[in-house]
C-alpha cells in the first residue's frame, strides 16, 4: 500500500470555538492509483490533504506513506519526506516569483537531489513551456503557471502527487487540459495521485472518488 490512513481526527480551535474537522477518516491508496477527494466547503478536504502531505499532524490516528509512519517524524523528517516523496500542487500555484520558469521547474528536483536537466527539458516540452523557460511567473497566464507548478512537482519523481484544487483558478477548458496532463504524468511515473476538487465532473475522470462529509468519508 502506498498511502494508508486510519482513524484520522483533527480539530481546530479550542473551547467553545473548537471545530472537529476530521472525525475518524480511514483511507488507502495503491501505487499508480488516482483518487478524487470531494466534498462541500468546510468538509475537511484540505485539512486531510495537509495531513497526508505531512504539512500538519493529525490529532490522532495513523498515517503512513510507503510504510513510513508520519506520526513518528520530526520537522526535519517530515521536510525530508515532502522533499523526496511528495509532489504538491496548490490552487494558488505558489511558484517562486523571483525564479525563472526553468528554475521553478527544476527547483524541487534539486532540493530532492534528483535534478536531471534532460528530464526537465522533456517535461517543459511536454507541458508546452519551452518558449517560456526564461520568463518569470508573473509574465505567464494562470494556466501556464499551473503547468509550471505541476512540472515542478513531477520533476522530483514523487511517490505521491497531492493536488489541492489545482484547477480552481482555471476555466473549464484549461482545467480539463491540466487534469489530463497530471493523469498522464502520474501514469508515466507510477506515482499515486490524490486530488481535492469541488468539481464532480473532474472527479469522475479519476480511478476512484472519495467524498468527505462532516469530517467522515461517505
Amino acid at each position: 500500500m502506498l498511502l494508508e490512513g486510519r482513524d484520522i481526527t483533527k480539530a481546530h480551535g479550542t473551547g467553545e470555538g473548537r471545530v472537529e474537522v476530521l472525525r475518524g477518516v480511514d483511507l488507502a491508496m495503491r501505487p499508480g492509483e488516482s483518487v478524487a477527494l470531494t466534498g462541500e466547503s468546510g468538509s475537511g478536504k484540505s485539512t486531510l490533504l495537509h495531513i497526508l502531505a505531512a504539512l500538519e499532524p493529525a490529532d490522532s490516528g495513523h498515517v503512513s506513506l510507503g510504510g513510513q509512519d508520519l506520526g513518528k517524524l520530526d520537522d526535519r523528517g517530515r521536510a525530508a519526506l515532502r522533499r523526496r516523496d511528495i509532489g504538491l500542487v496548490f490552487q494558488q500555484f505558489n511558484l517562486i516569483p523571483s525564479l525563472s520558469v526553468a528554475d521553478n521547474l527544476a527547483f524541487q528536483a534539486r532540493l530532492a537531489g534528483r535534478h536531471e536537466p534532460h528530464r526537465i527539458a522533456a517535461l517543459a516540452e511536454r507541458l508546452g513551456l519551452t518558449s517560456t523557460l526564461s520568463r518569470y511567473p508573473e509574465q505567464l497566464s494562470g494556466g501556464q503557471q499551473q503547468r509550471v507548478a505541476i512540472g515542478r512537482a513531477i520533476a522530483a519523481r514523487p511517490r505521491l502527487l497531492l493536488a489541492d484544487e489545482p484547477t480552481g483558478n482555471l476555466d473549464e477548458a484549461s482545467a480539463d487540459g491540466v487534469l489530463e496532463l497530471m493523469r498522464e504524468l502520474v501514469a508515466e511515473t507510477g506515482a499515486g495521485f490524490l486530488m481535492v476538487t469541488h468539481s464532480e465532473r473532474l472527479a469522475r475522470r479519476l480511478d476512484r472518488r472519495l467524498r468527505l462529509h462532516a469530517g467522515r468519508l461517505a
Partner: peptide
C-alpha cells in the same frame, strides 16, 4: 516563498 520552500521540504 518561505511557505512554498517549507511545503516543498526545506527544513
Amino acid at each position: 516563498v518561505f511557505r512554498t520552500l517549507r511545503a516543498l521540504g526545506v527544513p
